[in-house]
Amino acid sequence: MPELHHTIVAPVVTEKSSAAYGARKEYAFRVHPDATKPQIRAAIESLFKVSVTAVRTMVVRAKRRTYGRYVGRRPSWKKAIVTLKEGDTIAVFEG
């Protein structure tokens, strides 16, 4: 199993994710591309001492990026959307 901080790379703080938090209390994280849902659940639970009720994942496809004449691409990455047990929180969107 990958290291915890390896599994969870960073919280995704964007307009979309904060809207999802506002409406449904979902937290979005950028995770390791090879991390599985059980691994993500375990990592979140032990990192933030909370209980996770659901994990959904997706691979965010790479965007094309042109560097002058050269066409390249940014890496694809995996996003996990985590729902917590009622009452549990992670300090991402709060002050």
Binding site: V12, V13, T14, E15, S17, S18, G22, F93, E94, G95
Partner: peptide, 15 residues
């Protein structure tokens, strides 16, 4: 980053 101008939530702005 991640927000349009003026759309970031208060908590994040405050931080």
């Amino acid at each position: 980053p991640g927000f349009r101008k003026g759309k970031a939530p208060a908590a994040i702005v405050k931080k």
